[in-house]
Nucleic acid binder design. Structure first.
Lengths: 193, 193
DNA sequence: AAACAATCGTTGTTTATCCAACAAATGTTG
DNA sequence: CAACATTTGTTGGATAAACAACGATTGTTT
């Protein structure tokens, strides 16, 4: 770990990418517990010491990987996710819902142990995004509390939906969820969504 | 260029690979003359100075690229190219013939200017390979002259074939060419092939 | 339990790459 | 032709990655 690496250095980007994709490939073969740091570095063709310059250990890599995947999921759907629009909020909720489902279906049984990790990362990402949105709106109150409330609301609604026996259509569900969340982001016009 | 880079260093292998494949991709887009070193390094996401640590200029890269392609062509056909067998010699002749044809057909007009370069690289590769073969045979005479004769014979026969108006079937042609070349590699039993 | 092997996390040193800057050569435009 | 822009090789200094080695855990075998 030592001092921080320069994120803009091409070398750093390269090795990080190599580590990430090697890890992804390994996860498709084995379960997480049986993956060693050596496995990752061998497949990535990088030195083992270099790994530790980027990640504290393989758990930090897992964290980062989950975070990355969710972020990509958002960015693939939203043109400019950096400011609030009702449409962006829709997409955010929708993304969280689908991410939940994907975990329940496409992932192997053995990977469900990471549910709490995933929850933490998703909430973190959502919270950060909502903070950005709120701070760009000129509101008198602080942004932290509305962001927290909205984050938990979104995650809770998504969990509820993904766990439902026979889920309603996603689009329709999100339409109903939207005003419940937006109310925290529109303090000036709470009912008009 | 400075001092030589360590060929076994993973970093060296990586950047060389990046340069090579960026160059290949660019050649598919533009013609060689309009490709700059900057183009290559930008596409490869490496620093321009690093390029010059690997190649003297873009012409050296072209040389290397041709050499590489021909070598791959051989290695894709021959299991163990490191010693002489009649079958390996067959494959070598065959490879040179097909390489010639490929240049005359699939390549754009503008790339035919490199014919002499290609000739030099092919002959170089063939010669090196024949030298290895000859030196593993316990023959009293030196290996250089037989290797030279065979190299030119192979290249000449391949050129002749690829330039023919209506080419005979490659397999049949190679069968006839084989003894003409093998005679230089079998000094002890020249007629028995 | 003891012996053994594999993995871990760290360290000091060497090497490759990055980066910014430069003069020189080349290409382009008016 | 002259002014200008682009590309070319090269340089010195900073930083990331490679490498080998190490003690410390951890896991396995007997």
């Amino acid at each position: 770990m030592s001092s921080k690496l320069n994120e803009h250095d091409p070398r750093v980007r390269r090795t990080r990418q190599l580590i990430e994709q090697s890890f992804d490939n390994l996860l498709a073969e084995k379960n997480f517990d049986s993956i060693t740091v050596q496995d990752v570095t061998e497949k990535a063709q990088i030195n083992r010491a270099t790994f530790y310059a980027h990640f504290e250990d393989k758990y930090a890599l897992l964290d980062h990987s989950i975070r990355q995947k969710f972020r990509q999921e958002i960015e693939s759907r939203v043109l400019n996710a950096c400011h609030y629009t009702p449409e962006n909020l829709r997409m955010l909720i929708l993304t969280v819902c689908e991410f939940q489902v994907k975990l329940n279906t496409s992932c192997t049984q053995s990977q469900k142990q990471f549910a709490p990790l995933v929850e933490k990362q998703i909430k973190g990402q959502v919270y950060e995004l909502l903070l950005v949105w709120l701070r760009k709106m000129d509101i008198p109150t602080s942004a932290e509390m509305p962001a927290t409330a909205a984050t938990w609301a979104i995650y809770g609604l998504a969990s509820y939906w993904s766990a439902s026996k026979n889920r309603p259509a996603l689009e329709a569900y999100v339409d109903k969820a939207l005003p419940l969340v937006a109310v925290n982001l529109n303090p000036l016009a709470p009912a008009a969504v």
